[in-house]
Simulated assay, not measured.
Amino acid sequence: MSNSFLYVVTVLIWGSTWIAINYQLGDVAPEVSIFYRFALSAVIMFAFCYLKKMPLRFAPKLHFQLFAFGLALFGCNYYLLYNAQGYINSALTCIAFSLIMFANIINAKWWFKTHISSQVYYGGALGLIGIITLFWPQINTVELSQTTLTGLAFCIAGVLFASTGNMLSMKNQKMNMPVLPATAWGMLYGSIFMFVMALISGKEFNFAYTVEYISSLLYLSLFGSVIAFGCYLTLLDRIGAHKASYSTIMFPAVAVIISTFVEGFIWDGYTVIGLLLMLLGNLVVLSKTKAKKQIQTETIVTQSIVTQTPAVTTAQKA
């Protein structure tokens, strides 16, 4: 699959999961719902890998890394962000979580010595300003109280765990661990963590036998976890965490469009300006730099000379 396809699928699915998450809230505790989600996702992922004859056995020492990967990305990350919702509104949570792009930039440079071009910083800044503009009517009245600071602290901690999980996924792939089998183990370990946290918190392991709850659980498990994470974690290795994580900034754009049709959301000037800034930032981050284009052109010309094939024909085929 092309990088563009993986990116679009990730944005569309994760941008639409908000409505499914809304159907999960109610009679069942969030920690328990997250446990159900990733336990089911792990079963689906293991079954798929088994049918495709993908390697599922890893050396015992690698399971320590897989455990850390699952704990960070599928356990602590979700636990902290769901807890943040009890202190601040979803708009502020969304803005805080969008900082994962900058956390990934720092971690990518620290973990893998990744070179980050200036356009990534500019695009990320545009995207962040776009999200703040989009949600300005919901956040301009928020007071910087102890409750707000607590919620933001939960968010920042969740972002740091998520970014660490991103780095561990990239490390898994650099150690030749296939994405899907490694993710299956990560989801299993993440679901075990959520199970333990639900027990410690004294949550009841009940279940809502309604069409809304069951259908949203299936959607979040299959599409929101198995497919979306499969696409996103593949992108991490292909285009880098700093670029792949811009997809998190695009989620609100998809959510707003869906809300327009599902909930009758009314657009205003903040909506238009915010979305335009987010789209512009997306173009800036993912566009190829002039230097990279020049290198690719020179490579094509060199290859055409070596193979005695006209450069124009080679470029057209490429």
Rank of each mutant, 00 (worst) to 15 (best):
A91D: 15
A91S: 15
L92V: 09
L92P: 01
T93S: 11
I95P: 02
L99C: 14
L99K: 06
I100E: 00
I100W: 00
M101N: 14
N104W: 00
N104Q: 08
I105M: 08
I105D: 03
I105W: 01
I106C: 13
I106M: 13
I106K: 05
N107E: 15
N107R: 11
N107Q: 15
K109N: 12
H115N: 13
S117D: 15
V120D: 00
Y121D: 06
G123A: 14
G124E: 01
G124I: 00
G124V: 02
L126H: 01
L128G: 04
G130D: 00
W136H: 10
P137L: 12
P137M: 11
P137A: 13
Q138I: 09
Q138D: 15
V142Q: 06
E143V: 12
L144S: 11
Q146L: 10
L149N: 09
L149W: 08
G151I: 00
L152H: 03
L152K: 05
C155Q: 01
C155L: 05
G158C: 03
V159I: 13
L160N: 08
L160W: 10
F161G: 05
F161M: 11
F161E: 03
T164H: 12
T164F: 14
G165A: 06
G165C: 00
N166K: 05
N166R: 04
N166H: 02
L168A: 01
S169F: 00
S169W: 00
S169I: 08
M170L: 12
M170R: 09
K171H: 14
N172I: 09
K174G: 11
M175P: 08
L180T: 11
P181A: 08
A182H: 01
T183D: 10
A184L: 08
W185S: 03
W185F: 12
I192V: 15
F193S: 03
M194G: 01
V196D: 07
